[in-house]
Write a protein that binds this DNA or RNA. Structure first.
Length: 454
RNA sequence: GCCAAGAUGACCGAGAGGCGAGGUGCAUGGCUGCAAACCAUGAUACUUGGGUUCAAAUCCCAAUCUUGGCCCCA
C-alpha cells in the first residue's frame, strides 16, 4: 500500500520499520476547551487509518499525547478562576467522551505532558550537552542555527523563519529559536536543573515518543497546521538529540475543515464543537461526511453537505438491511453471478484504500456495488452462503470506516413495540384501501422522523 | 512581503496524459392506490490565456481567484 509522505510530497510504498508492527503517533489536543469539529475531522481520519492498517494485518500501536500544560491552559484557568490541573483534567475527560461518541476509539495510550516531565528534562539535558540548546536568563532554547536541516518538512529556510516575529525574547540568539524550558516562578511549575519552570510546547511530543517508541518510528500524524513550526521543531529536537535520521518515516497531515468556506473561529461566530454537532446530528453521518472527502483535502462543513452525507449513508444502509432480510429466505442459485460481483468490488475497494486511504473512491466502489446488487435482486438470488459472504464484506467495510451498518432493532423497547402496533394497524387499513387514513398516519410518523416505506 | 494548499457540473467530491468516478439534487420513464425505496434513461464540468503532445481536467509557463501558515491552533 502507498502513503503520501509530507516530507517527500509523494506517495511512497508503505514499509514499517519492523515488519508487521506499526508505531503511530498523532498530536493530541491541548485540553483547555471542548474539541471542535476540525479536531473531529483529524481524529476520525486517523481512526480510519489505524483501522485500515489493522485490517491489512498490521499490529498498530497508536500513541497520542495530551497537552495539559501550556499558556492557553494557564490563561483560561486565570479567566475562569480555576486550577490549571483541574481545568485540564476536565477538558481531557470531555475530549475522551467526544471521541467515544464519534466512534474514535483506536488510541492505545494517551500520554500527558505533565506525566513526562523527567523525560522532557532529560531530553533537554541531552540537547544542551550536544550543543544544540543553550540556557539564558529566561529559559532554555533550541539553537536552530546548529541544526543543519531545519525547515526540511515545511521547505523553509532560516532566513524565512527569522523575519516578522513579534515580541521576540531578547535573550535568544535567533528569533526562530524556540523554548524547550520556560523559567517561571509562579505555579504551575516543576523543578529542573535550570530552576523552576515548565516545558516548552514542542518538547513533550519528542520526549513522549522517545519514551515509548524510541528515536525513530513509523508514522507521525496531525493537522496541516502543525507542519510549521511544531513538527519542524520535533524533528530538530529528536534528530539532534539522537543523531539518528529520520525521526519518522511517514509524515501524514490532514487537511483543514472550513465552515461554509471560512475558517472556523470564535470571532466569526462559526465555531462548532463536537458537542454542539452531536446535539442534533448522528455521529455516523459526521463520520461519513468526513470520510467522503480525502483526508488530505480541505473539507467544507455545512448543513447542506451534512444532509447530503446522511442521505448517501442511508443508501448503503438500505441495501445492508435488505441483505439481512433476504438472509431468512434466500435459496437462490445465482451464486456465480453474485460471487463475481463481490470479488470485483472487493478488489476495487481495497485498491482504493491501498492508495493512500482514498476513502471517497472506495465509497464510490461501494455505491456501484450497491447499485449492482439492487439491480440483480430484481431477478436473481444467491444462496445463503454467498449472501453471508456479501454481508460479511459490508461488515468489514463498516469496521474499517467505523460505520454501524446494522439494522437497528426495536427489540425490548416499548416505543419500538408501540411503533410495530401502529404499523400493523396501518397495514390493515391499507388492505381495506383506507388510503386517506393510512397516508395520514404515515405523514405524521414522518414528521416524527420515522420513515415508513411500503 | 514570504511560504503552502487549492480552483472539476445545481451542490458535494474522485481522477492526474487516451473509455468524462461516485453521491446528493433535478427531469423523464418503470414499479406503486399515492408517496418513499429501488431500477432505467437524461441534462448540466474540468478558473482563464498560452505552450508541449497524435492525444491534456491531468504535463509546462503565465494570470486571476480562494483558503491557510509565518504568535497560538487538528
Amino acid at each position: 500500500m502507498k502513503i503520501y509522505n509530507t516530507m517527500s510530497r509523494k506517495k511512497e510504498q508503505f514499509k514499517p520499520m519492523n515488519d508487521q508492527r506499526v508505531k503511530l503517533f498523532v498530536c493530541g489536543p491541548t485540553v483547555y476547551d471542548d474539541a471542535h469539529i476540525g479536531h473531529g475531522r483529524t481524529y476520525i481520519s486517523f481512526d480510519m487509518i489505524k483501522r485500515y492498517l489493522e485490517y491489512k494485518g498490521y499490529s498498530v500501536f497508536y500513541l497520542q499525547n495530551v497537552t495539559d500544560i501550556d499558556d492557553k491552559i494557564i490563561n483560561r484557568s486565570a479567566e475562569v478562576d480555576a486550577d490549571p490541573e483541574v481545568l485540564a483534567r476536565k477538558f481531557e475527560k470531555r475530549y475522551q467522551e467526544d471521541m467515544e461518541a464519534l466512534g474514535v476509539n483506536g488510541v492505545n495510550l494517551f500520554a500527558r505532558a505533565t506525566d513526562h516531565v523527567p523525560e522532557i528534562i532529560s531530553q533537554i539535558e541531552t540537547l544542551i550537552e550536544k550543543g544544540f540548546a543553550y540556557e539564558t536568563s529566561t529559559g532554555v532554547y533550541f539553537d536552530e542555527a546548529k541544526f543543519e536541516n531545519f525547515g526540511k518538512l515545511s521547505r523553509r529556510n532560516l532566513e524565512d523563519l527569522n523575519v516578522h516575529r513579534v515580541n521576540i525574547d531578547q535573550t535568544k540568539k535567533n528569533p526562530g529559536d524556540f523554548a524547550l524550558w520556560k523559567k517561571r516562578d509562579e505555579e504551575p511549575l516543576w523543578d529542573s536543573p535550570w530552576g523552576t519552570g515548565r516545558p516548552g510546547w514542542h518538547i513533550e511530543d519528542t520526549a513522549i515518543t522517545e519514551e515509548y517508541f524510541g528515536p525513530q518510528y513509523d508514522i507521525h500524524g496531525g493537522g496541516l497546521d502543525l507542519i510549521f513550526p511544531h513538527h519542524e521543531a520535533e524533528i530538530a529536537q529528536m534528530e539532534a538529540a539522537s543523531g539518528k535520521s529520520p525521526m519518522v518515516r511517514y509524515w501524514m497531515h490532514t487537511g483543514f475543515l472550513n465552515v461554509s468556506g471560512e475558517k472556523m473561529s470564535k470571532s466569526l461566530g462559526n465555531f462548532i464543537t463536537i458537542r454542539d454537532l452531536l446535539e442534533d446530528h448522528d455521529p455516523q453521518v459526521f463520520r461519513f461526511f468526513v470520510l467522503s472527502t480525502h483526508y488530505r483535502s480541505p473539507i467544507d462543513f455545512s448543513e447542506k453537505t451534512l444532509d447530503q452525507a446522511a442521505k448517501s449513508l442511508k443508501r448503503i444502509q438500505k441495501t445492508v438491511e435488505k441483505l439481512n432480510e433476504l438472509l431468512d429466505s434466500s435459496a437462490g442459485n445465482d451464486d456465480d453471478y453474485f460471487s463475481g460481483l463481490l470479488k470485483d468490488y472487493r478488489i476495487k475497494f481495497l485498491e482504493s484504500m491501498d492508495n493512500d486511504f482514498n476513502t471517497p473512491e472506495a465509497l464510490a466502489h461501494i455505491f456501484n456495488f450497491v447499485k449492482e446488487l439492487n439491480k440483480a435482486f430484481e431477478d436473481k438470488t444467491p444462496s445463503e452462503k454467498v449472501l453471508k459472504d456479501i454481508i460479511s464484506f459490508f461488515n468489514e467495510f463498516g469496521e474499517i470506516m467505523g460505520f454501524d451498518l446494522a439494522v437497528k432493532s426495536n427489540d425490548g423497547d416499548i416505543s419500538g413495540e408501540l411503533l410495530d402496533i401502529i404499523k400493523d394497524v396501518r397495514q390493515k387499513l391499507r388492505e381495506k384501501k383506507e388510503w386517506a387514513l393510512s397516508d395520514d398516519i404515515r405523514g405524521r410518523l414522518n414528521d416524527l422522523g420515522i420513515d415508513v416505506e411500503d
